[in-house]
Nucleic acid binder design. Sequence first.
DNA 1: AGCCTTGCTGATAATGATTGTCAAAACCAT
DNA 2: ATGGTTTTGACAATCATTATCAGCAAGGCT
Lengths: 134, 134
Amino acid sequence: MKRNTWQREAVRGALDANDGFVSAQALHSALHATGSPIGLATVYRALADLATTGDADSLQSPEGESLYRACSTNEHHHHLICRNCGLTIEIEPHAVEQWANDVAVANGFTQAEHIVDVFGLCAACSALTAASTL
Amino acid sequence: MKRNTWQREAVRGALDANDGFVSAQALHSALHATGSPIGLATVYRALADLATTGDADSLQSPEGESLYRACSTNEHHHHLICRNCGLTIEIEPHAVEQWANDVAVANGFTQAEHIVDVFGLCAACSALTAASTL
DNA sequence: AGCCTTGCTGATAATGATTGTCAAAACCAT
DNA sequence: ATGGTTTTGACAATCATTATCAGCAAGGCT
Ligand SMILES: [Zn+2]
Ligand SMILES: [Zn+2]
Ligand SMILES: [Zn+2]
Ligand SMILES: [Zn+2]
């Protein structure tokens, strides 16, 4: 059976305390910064579990790192992510769901899944960038 | 200025000869298999260049590997990919384009880009899977 | 509470993709 | 052909992630 350990709780808590997507490495550093002696491998395992059970969302940064986030809902949804500060906004399900499925079926594909993420600069970071280029 | 080398041509050719998305490593192996002595680092560099100039599309597999493909058009488009055999179908631009932009603007984001890919099992692989589970 | 079984943890090694290094080789305008 | 520059490639270095595996601890049991 699955056991309850303070490590798992710590990872879940650290995820909750974070607004945007975070890497396993970053989360491990953050936990250490608070004095937690949790091991890196354990953070990886906990995140993988959370992602499997749907308690956390995961995606890959454009640089190829796996990022995780505790989302407000375990319903299927997508994200709008600031590529500068990591601010993340959850996007409601939309016709894109139907479209993704239709296009798969139309081509004879089964067991279709889709990756849909929008990256950009949030309002705050947009302002900073504009200011720095004046 | 940018120079013409047989290595670049070899990489471009190997990409063209391939239907689906391929990893740099796989492409390097394929080239070696044909007797080409091209170096691995060179393949990585050539692919990065091709992706930068828009001569090749790139995406990350669900496992985190960078994959490349020579597409029939350099217009913006998306892909339907068989996660088993790599067969790739180019998807026409669609309302999803407008939607991605709208959702970004509505949240104050600028310089929005999006990642939209559909993974599944192509008809052939679906049949194989069904047969093996009988 | 004490014991036992078994999953969980963590230090470390291993893996594997990607990038950095830098001398030698290849390009190309002159 | 020559020379300044770019590109190549063998190899080392990085870096995230996974595998090991002995020791620890959670939970069930008595
Ligand atoms: Zn931001
Ligand atoms: Zn969706
Ligand atoms: Zn297939
Ligand atoms: Zn698009």
